[in-house]
């Protein structure tokens, strides 16, 4: 029986690859957008205009304080009631971007705050304006502390992208869920799904560890 299911599973490999491509697309697009969003709001929050700062604290807390599953339900089921009808794919991208942005905001703001105050003062004394100070003095130094947790966060977000399967997007997780209805060998089917995720996430974990070691070697 086992070998029969195994050959059936081998036949559905193309289906799994399609799912892998969907996971790639969703997490790729929303990671790029989330990184842009996260850096913008992170820099804004570290910048310190008071009302904006509190607003961003609320945004980050709401995103980090509620499960992503609930967030995607809100985007997918509630926005239509308010007249914003999103198909599954844009809904997934939209919610994952907002979710990623909050975590990345926290990392970026933390990295900027870790840069010594004197650096900004020196840059001011040199006559650089706010944009130049951020671009040429603060960010290059902040990047060193930002990179390791940022890559670690990417891993968490790619894994969280598995939750978009609940609104019917056929990513790897949903492919596994559909396949297990035909091939009732959960260990085999979700073992394969797990291997696919592992092959994406594990290299990124190693990369994050490498960044961290490099940071420590530089005495950061």
């Amino acid at each position: 029986m086992w070998s029969f299911y195994f050959s059936q599973l081998a036949d559905s490999i193309p289906f799994f690859l399609k799912g892998l491509w969907m996971t790639f697309k969703i997490s790729g697009i929303s990671l790029v957008l989330g990184t842009i969003l996260g850096f913008c709001v992170g820099i804004a929050r570290a910048g310190g205009i008071k009302p904006l700062r509190y607003l961003l604290y609320i945004y980050v807390d709401v995103m980090r304080g509620t499960p992503y599953l609930v967030q995607i339900f809100i985007v997918f089921f509630i926005l239509p009631e308010w007249g914003i009808q999103l198909a599954a794919f844009p809904a997934a991208i939209f919610s994952l971007t907002l979710y990623a942005g909050a975590y990345i905001c926290e990392i970026v703001a933390g990295g900027i705050e870790a840069v010594d105050e004197g650096q900004t003062e020196a840059a001011m004394a040199t006559g650089l304006n706010r944009f130049q100070r951020t671009r040429y003095v603060v960010m290059p130094q902040a990047m060193r502390t930002i990179l390791p947790p940022l890559v670690g966060q990417y891993v968490l977000l790619i894994k969280d992208s598995s939750i978009v399967s609940v609104i019917g997007l056929t990513d790897i997780t949903r492919v596994g869920w559909l396949t297990v209805q035909r091939i009732p060998e959960g260990i085999m089917v979700f073992g394969l799904v797990g291997i696919l995720y592992f092959s994406i996430c594990y290299p990124l974990i190693l990369l994050s560890n490498w960044f961290e070691r490099r940071l420590r070697a530089q005495g950061g």
Partner: peptide, 23 residues
Amino acid sequence: IELIRSTPLLVQLYFFYFGLPSL
């Protein structure tokens, strides 16, 4: 540790939910 950290909880959940009965 590395296996758990590189796979989503949802997949782990389905792995046990659909997998344990066949064991």
